[in-house]
């Protein structure tokens, strides 16, 4: 399934948070990174894509308007992983992932469901957490559980809002590797909000860069990650080098604001 938006706008109050966004977000088998400064509207954009907020304009799934699809169908196809993973539920990790997988709790849980949950925990290498309670986990461990909850649903569209923000270097790489692999092998259209531009460049096929609720740039990593764009969006002077595979690498130099302040 492809996901795109057409003149999408959204406002929480008087002033609009998202303004007239029209962009092809992701295609099956592709990872799209959504980047942008704090409060650019990334999380709001994700909630609109997930159908949790109702924007003006259209979110299109393979040409069908999301707003017109029945709720159960959206739930089945679209999986959204919220940015905020603070959970105080007294559930074991296994139960929490099973909960995300099963769409209805009956007393009997089918063998396939147990196998799927176990498989996902195994892939993310968090099997040893299976019997631990969510409220006893570290921030990073919780994030791993949230990722497991997302992957176990095997959606057509996977929306992850800063899924790696609390993870250490190794887990960031492993999780994104796995997400990329699942995206390719299952033909998922994956959209990830990220702050680490180099990590994003390494795993994403496409970039969408938001600034103040608008699409500032969209396209291949090398097209979006340019010194000019970085300056306009983040107010940062940066060098961008391309490695042998053509992947851009950002080396931030100085904040423009800082330079201005020092000069004054």
């Amino acid at each position: 399934m492809t996901i795109s938006v057409k003149s999408l706008s959204f406002s929480y109050g008087a002033s609009p948070t998202l303004r007239e966004i029209t962009v092809d977000v992701a295609e099956p088998g592709q990872v799209t990174a959504v980047i942008g400064p704090n409060a650019a509207g990334k999380s709001t954009f994700f909630k609109c894509l997930a159908g949790l907020l109702v924007p003006t304009g259209d979110v299109m799934l393979s040409g069908c308007a999301l707003a017109e699809m029945p709720r159960y169908m959206v739930t089945e196809q679209v999986c959204y992983l919220p940015q905020d993973t603070a959970i105080n539920a007294i559930l074991t990790v296994f139960e929490a992932v099973l909960l995300a997988h099963k769409q209805a709790a009956t007393w009997r849980i089918a063998d396939e469901d147990l196998a799927s949950v176990s498989e996902v925990l195994c892939k993310l290498e968090i099997e040893d957490l299976a019997l631990r309670y969510l409220n006893e986990l570290s921030g990073g461990q919780r994030q791993m559980v949230s990722i497991a909850q997302a992957l176990v649903r095997s959606p057509s569209i996977l929306l992850m809002d800063e899924p790696t923000s609390a993870l250490d270097l190794q887990h960031q790489l492993e999780v994104l590797d796995l997400v990329q692999e699942e995206t390719r092998s299952r033909g998922i259209a994956t959209v990830i909000a990220m702050h680490d531009l180099n990590l994003a460049a390494r795993f994403a096929d496409r970039f969408v860069c938001l600034k103040s609720g608008k699409v500032h740039a969209a396209g291949l990593p090398a097209e979006v990650l340019t010194p000019a764009t970085l300056y306009e969006v983040y107010g940062v002077h940066a060098n961008v080098t391309l490695d042998s595979t053509g992947t851009p690498h950002v080396v931030p130099l100085r904040s423009a604001r800082k330079i201005a302040r020092t000069a004054a």
Partner: peptide
């Protein structure tokens, strides 16, 4: 099931349908 899902937070519960 829905009540258990609610304990994961409103947003997660909503995204689970």
């Amino acid at each position: 099931w829905a009540l258990t899902a609610l304990r994961l937070g409103d947003e997660k519960a909503r995204s689970l349908g």
